[in-house]
Design a protein around this nucleic acid. Sequence first.
DNA 1: GCCTTAGGTTTACGATATAAACTTGTTTAC
DNA 2: GTAAACAAGTTTATATCGTAAACCTAAGGC
Lengths: 105, 105
Amino acid sequence: MKDTALKSILDVDRMIHEPARLAILTVLSAAEQVEFLFLLKVTGLSKGNLSAQAQKLEAAGYVETTKGFRGRVPVTSFRITPAGRKALAAYHTQMRAFLPKQPSK
Amino acid sequence: MKDTALKSILDVDRMIHEPARLAILTVLSAAEQVEFLFLLKVTGLSKGNLSAQAQKLEAAGYVETTKGFRGRVPVTSFRITPAGRKALAAYHTQMRAFLPKQPSK
DNA sequence: GCCTTAGGTTTACGATATAAACTTGTTTAC
DNA sequence: GTAAACAAGTTTATATCGTAAACCTAAGGC
C-alpha cells in the first residue's frame, strides 16, 4: 500500500462509504433503472431507511428519482446519475488502493 | 460480485469501517508497536480524535495500550491484538469481495 | 362503509465522529 | 527561581448521522 492511500482513506466520500448507501448505489450502477420495492428486497433495508438514504443520495446529486404510477399504485424509481457513477468509481479506486493485494491470512 | 456480498456489506464491522480507525489499525498491523506521536504524524488525525478512536479500539479489544516514559516524558504506545488482526483481515475479505475486480472505467 | 394492505415519508432517538478546551507535567527563558 | 511556553494526551461539547417506529394517503377487500 502506498503512503498516500493511508491518508486518502480519511477523505473517502462518506456519502458513499456508508454501507446502506453503498449497497443502494451498487445496485443502481448495475441497472438502467430500479424500483423502490426491488431495492427494498435486494438490499434488505427497512423502508424508512431506504427512503431516507435515497433522499440523501438524491440531495448529493448521485441519484435521480422518478415518481409515477403503475395503474393506480405509486411507483418510485431510481437511477444513478453520471456524477454518482463517477463518485462510485472513485470510491472503488480508493478502496482498492487501500486493500492488501492478497489475503494476509 | 456475489449477491451475498451485497447484503454482507450492511453487516460490515463498523468499528473498522470508520476511516480514522481503519487508518490506525492499518498502521498498527504493519508494525510490532507504534507510538502515539508517530501515529499522529502518519495518519494526520488530530490528537483528540486519535486519542478517542484509539480508546474505542481498545474497548473493542482490537488494540492494546501501553503507557510508559521516555526519560521523564510520557509515551503512549499501541499494538494490535490477535482479535484486531483477525477482524481487520475479515474486513479486507469482505471489502475485496465487494469491489469490482477491475476499474469499471 | 370499515378494515386492511401497499407504498412510501417524516419524526424521534441514540450513537458517533470530531474539534476545542482542558490537564498534568516538563523544559526553556528571563 | 519563577513565569512562560511546550509536550502529550484526555475530556467535554456539539453537530451530524443512521435507524426504526410512527405516521400518512390512497386503493382494494369484506
